[in-house]
Design a binder for these strands. Sequence first.
DNA 1: TATTGTTATACTCTATAACTATA
DNA 2: TATAGTTATAGAGTATAACAATA
Lengths: 163, 163
Amino acid sequence: MLPERPMSEDPKSDALAPLSRIIQLSTAITKGRLVERATEQAGLARDRPAMAVLVSLRTAGKPLRIGEIADRMQVVGPHVTRQVQILEKRGLVHRVADPHDGRASVIEPTEAGTECANQYVAYLLGWFTDALVDWPQQDRDDLARLLTRLADDVTARLAQLDE
Amino acid sequence: MLPERPMSEDPKSDALAPLSRIIQLSTAITKGRLVERATEQAGLARDRPAMAVLVSLRTAGKPLRIGEIADRMQVVGPHVTRQVQILEKRGLVHRVADPHDGRASVIEPTEAGTECANQYVAYLLGWFTDALVDWPQQDRDDLARLLTRLADDVTARLAQLDE
DNA sequence: TATTGTTATACTCTATAACTATA
DNA sequence: TATAGTTATAGAGTATAACAATA
């Protein structure tokens, strides 16, 4: 859903190009099914949301409770419950009861689960590395710097919108 | 669904930051409901996909057939049929029969539809302009340039994946 | 018989509501 | 009675299948 209209004398034109391109990127990645491809390649075809849970655990680097996973993924609890059940059936995570709180348990990737997440990340990273391979080093550095600032700015401003 | 792992000696580290940030951006915009806010503000609450059709027509700058809209949006025909029906009921588009082809008609925004799309774009662009307002001019230029190249590279590479 | 579009249905992802068990 | 999690259900967005009308 992009604007796209030439208005070079408009002060808003500085925002038009980045906004259009972010929309283009997002659309291309979605329609190109990049995440689905990485998920399939990691052996978890047709379970992309479950893969997201596995990646969350990998990112955390430690076992997490259902509620903690939901917070990190910014989704609701029941969704995580369902995905964890799928991962359990596939033998990619297992539960460890919390000895101090009988209501909760902690979700831990199995060896197969860790391997699966690693493959997923390796695929995505490899794909993206290839995309940048012909770029001058200076441009790669600038891209990383500017995109980091942009993402932080946008994240902060969107968080404010909710007050 | 982000990797996020420090590996500064890895040649892939140049791709990690941009990739992570794009994911962060995309997640923040989705969770912050930026598109929904713009749609509501334009008076089309609860009809975000219909708004996307209206924006497509605005971007084209000319009336389009159902099939043309579907192509541009990269969605299937039946989805567009449905959204156009919603827009028709709301008086935001109307159909003009194609005199040369009885099977097709062309979809044209009404005055209200044009105004609605303009408000949508103005909201998004205004929001994004505010986000960049404190940036040095050089950084804004670099961001536009690098993001354009990145979007084009990624779009081309993803199109190749389908062969 | 190929193309344009429509109707009906199904699928993916995630949310809300109601409930259970432990704290 | 507050909290962690589960089960059941609903909703948004988009796809597939079957069909109708015109080319």
